[in-house]
């Protein structure tokens, strides 16, 4: 595979600032009536001409402050956003561990949710049926698998979601600050699984505030600031520049639990 797993070329992602767009017909009419151009909003550039390559088998860390554009990069790779300009190339099957359990329905049982979530992630029904026992076993859900997920503890919920998301045998794994999930024992299992993916030569892209995770896991790191790529270098170096940038007084960030 000569092509890189992921290639960004001059990617710009701009968003309209949300309050200023006409949300209702009335506002649209008012705008029309006053002959104001509808585009009175201003554009916010979340990413400004970002270019980088991620070769197959690399583990890439992305660091930066909140709102710097890290998650936007992941969402573009995942295909959630289509960039405003520039080109993005993604070669391989993606497992987005961006928001675990985003597709879960609370009234449905664990088993029913495995099916729907797996289909949403692009698996076929047959593949899911084949993978189901392994998913249930890894998630350590036991007999709760046939109970509605609204009765699950948040740990069980995350375990099931992680288990489904990583069962797809991805080529590229996207991880957004989720590894603070569950109890210590399960975290170890998650890291083990991610470690396995690494050994199998899969590409991993990890967004994290946790310097240790970046240092231990990654081969390379991107430092993003205000939508610009500041550094594309070794993890140690990127972390050093990050520390410099935010000032040394910043306490080590405890990554927030992902919301549902």
């Amino acid at each position: 595979m000569a092509n890189p797993a992921v290639r960004f070329q001059n990617v710009v992602q701009s968003f309209r600032v949300i309050q200023e767009r006409p949300d209702t017909l009335r506002e649209a009419f008012v705008h029309f009536h006053r002959r104001k151009p509808r585009s009175t909003h201003h554009n916010f550039e979340a990413l400004k001409h970002i270019s980088f390559d991620v070769p197959h088998g690399t583990t890439l860390g992305i660091i930066g402050r909140n709102g710097s554009g890290k998650s936007t990069i992941l969402k573009i790779i995942a295909g959630v956003y289509r960039p405003s300009s520039g080109s993005v190339e993604v070669n391989g099957r993606i497992a987005p561990l961006i928001e675990l359990g985003a597709g879960f329905h609370h009234e449905l049982t664990g088993r029913e949710n495995i099916l729907i979530n797996g289909l949403l992630l692009g698996l076929s029904k047959r593949e899911i049926q084949r993978l189901e026992p392994a998913i249930i076993e890894f998630a350590e859900i036991g007999e709760f698998i046939d109970a509605p997920v609204k009765q699950y503890s948040s740990g069980m919920y995350m375990r099931l979601a992680f288990s489904v998301a990583t069962a797809v045998d991805p080529d590229i794994l996207l991880i957004d600050e989720i590894l603070s999930v569950g109890d210590a024992g399960f975290r170890v299992k998650c890291f083990e699984r991610i470690g396995n993916f690494r050994e199998q030569g899969k590409t991993i892209i990890l967004v994290s505030h946790d310097a240790e995770q970046i240092r231990d896991f990654c081969d390379r790191a991107l430092l993003i600031h205000n939508g610009e790529l500041i550094a594309d270098t070794l993890p140690e170096e990127a972390l050093a520049r990050y520390q410099e940038m935010i000032g040394h007084h910043q306490p080590r960030t405890v990554s927030a639990l992902p919301g549902r």
Partner: peptide, 9 residues
């Protein structure tokens, strides 16, 4: 919306 903002579907 929650789903569309997180996963490509």
């Amino acid at each position: 919306a929650q789903l569309l903002k997180k996963v490509r579907v």
